[in-house]
Measured scan of single mutants.
Amino acid sequence: DVEEQIRRLEEVLKKNQPVTWNGTTYTDPNEIKKVIEELRKSM
Rank of each mutant, 00 (worst) to 15 (best):
K34P: 02
Q17K: 07
K15I: 07
E4F: 07
E3G: 11
E4K: 10
K15F: 11
V19A: 07
D28F: 02
D1I: 10
D1Y: 12
E10D: 04
P29N: 04
D28N: 05
V12M: 15
I36R: 00
M43G: 08
N22V: 02
M43K: 09
V19C: 07
K14N: 11
K14D: 10
K15C: 11
Q17N: 05
E38G: 11
T25G: 02
G23I: 00
V12P: 02
R7D: 03
E31N: 03
L13H: 04
I36W: 02
V12S: 15
K14H: 13
S42N: 11
P18D: 14
K33L: 12
L39M: 07
V2M: 12
N16T: 04
E11W: 02
K41A: 12
N30S: 13
R7K: 10
D28H: 04
L13I: 12
L39A: 02
E11Y: 03
N30F: 11
V19W: 15
L13W: 05
I6Y: 02
K34Q: 10
N22G: 14
M43S: 09
E3T: 09
P29L: 07
V2S: 05
T27H: 08
E37P: 00
E31F: 05
K14P: 04
E37Y: 04
L39H: 01
K41H: 08
R8H: 14
I32S: 01
D1G: 11
R7Q: 09
Y26E: 01
V19H: 05
E31I: 05
D28W: 02
T25A: 03
N30E: 15
D1W: 14
V2F: 10
L13E: 02
L13F: 07
P18I: 11
I6Q: 01
V19F: 09
K34C: 07
L39I: 07
V12K: 14
V19M: 05
N30K: 11
T27E: 08
K34M: 11
W21F: 14
E38A: 09
Q5C: 07
W21T: 11
N16V: 04
D1E: 13
E10A: 03
L13C: 06
Q5V: 14
P29D: 04
K41G: 08
E37R: 05
R7L: 08
Q5H: 08
Y26K: 01
K15D: 07
E31W: 02
P18G: 11
P18A: 09
T24D: 09
R40V: 06
T24F: 08
L39Q: 01
V35P: 00
E11F: 02
T24I: 15
D1F: 12
V12L: 15
E4S: 09
T25F: 10
R8W: 15
E3S: 10
E3Y: 12
E4W: 06
W21L: 15
T27F: 09
N22E: 15
K14I: 10
M43H: 08
D1H: 11
V12W: 08
E3F: 12
E38S: 12
E10K: 04
I6S: 01
R8G: 08
D1R: 11
W21D: 05
D1P: 10
Y26R: 00
N22D: 14
W21E: 07
T24K: 11
K33A: 13
Q17H: 06
P29K: 05
L39C: 02
I6A: 02
T27Y: 12
M43L: 14
G23K: 01
T27S: 09
K14C: 12
V35D: 01
D28R: 01
Q17E: 14
E3N: 09
G23C: 08
N22S: 02
T20C: 15
K34E: 06
E11M: 05
I6V: 06
L13G: 02
T24L: 11
M43E: 05
P29E: 06
K33W: 09
W21C: 14
V19R: 00
S42D: 06
L13V: 11
E37I: 08
N16H: 09
P29V: 08
E10H: 04
T20W: 15
W21V: 15
K34A: 13
D28Y: 02
T25Q: 04
R7M: 10
L39N: 00
I36C: 02
K15L: 15
V19G: 09
V2A: 08
N30V: 14
I36V: 06
T25M: 08
R40H: 05
L13Y: 06
L9G: 00
K34F: 08
E10S: 05
E31L: 07
I36N: 00
Y26F: 09
N30T: 11
E37V: 07
I32N: 00
R8C: 14
E4H: 09
D1C: 13
